[in-house]
Amino acid sequence: MSSMNLNWAAIEADPKFQNLHRRKSRFLWGLMAFSVFYYFLLPIGAAYYQELFKTQIWGPVNIGLVFALSEFIVAWSIAVIYSKKANQEFDVLAAEIIANAQQIGGKK
């Protein structure tokens, strides 16, 4: 893969890129941690909190079923939240950096 002729270190150090990096990292890893945590609540709940999962709340529908269905809703919500955030914020910030790449990173 041929390297482009840019001063990558300068771009990396640029406040614009640092801003993107900070926002993105915090958002992505936070969302990632939450989704893993929420997912593992299901097997843990099904194994150790069976009485709770068996509680019927809507005819034969119990908390366990509702919780399993909620996993789908949460996964889809994460996808929508991320995509909104990325489209509205990260893509805009990245586009600015790309537009100024030659200027900030200039030829070495």
């Binding site: 097997p43 099904a46 399993a68 996808a79």
Partner: peptide, 18 residues
């Protein structure tokens, strides 16, 4: 059986985010 299917969808969050 239904609980089993959940993990296969959640797996895509990793793919999507990182």
């Amino acid at each position: 059986g239904f609980m089993y299917s959940v993990g296969w969808l959640v797996a895509y969050i990793t793919v999507l985010l990182v």
